[in-house]
């Protein structure tokens, strides 16, 4: 398996996706649903009605209260996990590239979700068209997920902005959204995250950045070319300019974090210099996406 090593996959088997709220899934799963069902976990009683399965009559209660009460159990349903990959040109940066790091990250999260019998959907907009894989369940589907991730080539100017809005409006996803993106947009990426702020969707954005973006090592007289927009900026790199750049970046980050915090969007750092194992096994667990 190219994206993730076997040892790492083995360590992922002990994890599961955490949902802050229980979501109603389409299929039975291993996750307790709000709908009463047939799991072994007791939920409540209700008065017996004609047609109720006699197996669920609480005979002990009848003996004590002389009333027929039917036991209700939590129905175990699956959790919809939506994996979203930003493969715009800006993700093709750094060593390793942010795109590769993001693919490996989503592969790990998806693998964990599949092991938890969750429904996993993968969606990635891009220049060559959207890549979408839906309704993956069980670890046997992991291969399909990984194939889809590997096929997702970086390129073009298409970010998550308009495609994300269209996708949300079309699919109306409910569940847990895990997106890997650098969230860099000239207009401010937060402006394009509004569609995911909706009921039924718990959004986690893992912001994949390379160390060179945080602390550029450029020097001299350069023409900086934006891979997505082809816009260029002529700069003579100086300590003063670097300080200004960091200030601009910090300001951008601050506004993004502020938006996400106010919209209950979980924003997590994914610096490519941090080993993926550390990100998945420690940081994402600490931030509550996994346990």
């Amino acid at each position: 398996m190219a994206l993730l090593e076997k040892d790492f996959l083995a360590r992922l088997e002990r994890l599961e996706i955490v949902s802050r709220r229980i979501r109603r899934g389409a299929y039975r799963g291993e996750r307790r649903s709000v709908r009463r069902g047939s799991s072994v976990e007791f939920a409540d009683h209700r008065p017996y009605g004609a047609g109720d399965d006699l197996r669920f009559l609480d005979w002990n209660l009848y003996a004590r209260l002389d009333r027929l009460m039917t036991k209700l159990f939590y129905d175990e349903e699956d959790l919809a996990v939506f994996l979203v990959l930003d493969r715009s040109q800006s993700m093709d940066f750094g060593t390793p590239t942010k795109a590769l790091y993001a693919k490996r990250l989503l592969a790990a999260v998806g693998y964990i979700a599949l092991l938890g019998m969750n429904r996993v959907h993968f969606w990635s907009p891009g220049e060559g068209g959207e890549i979408e894989v839906r309704n993956l369940r069980s670890s046997g589907s992991a291969e399909r997920l990984f194939d889809a991730l590997e096929r997702a080539e970086v390129g073009g100017s298409s970010g998550l902005d308009d495609p994300l809005r269209r996708w949300v409006n079309t699919r109306r996803p409910r569940g847990v959204l895990v997106a890997a993106s650098d969230l860099l947009h000239p207009d401010g990426a937060w402006e394009h995250l509004r569609p995911v702020v909706r009921g039924g969707l718990e959004s986690h954005f893992i912001r994949v950045l390379s160390p060179e973006e945080e602390h550029p090592t450029l020097e001299g007289d350069l023409r900086l070319v934006d891979g997505e927009t082809n816009a260029s900026v002529d700069v003579s790199v100086s300590p003063g300019l670097l300080r200004r750049y960091e200030a601009a970046r910090t300001d951008y980050d601050r506004r993004l974090e502020s938006f996400c915090r106010s919209r209950q969007i979980s924003l997590m750092p994914g610096l490519t210099s941090v080993p993926l194992e550390e990100l998945v096994l420690e940081i994402l667990r600490r931030r509550g996406l996994l346990r």
Partner: peptide, 23 residues
């Protein structure tokens, strides 16, 4: 000749543009 600068791809030129304008 010196004005023909070395082109360097960056993920977000707008941040540099902001920094430059600020400077």
């Amino acid at each position: 000749l010196k004005q023909k600068r070395v082109e360097v791809p960056v993920p977000a030129a707008f941040l540099w543009q902001n920094a430059l304008e600020d400077l």
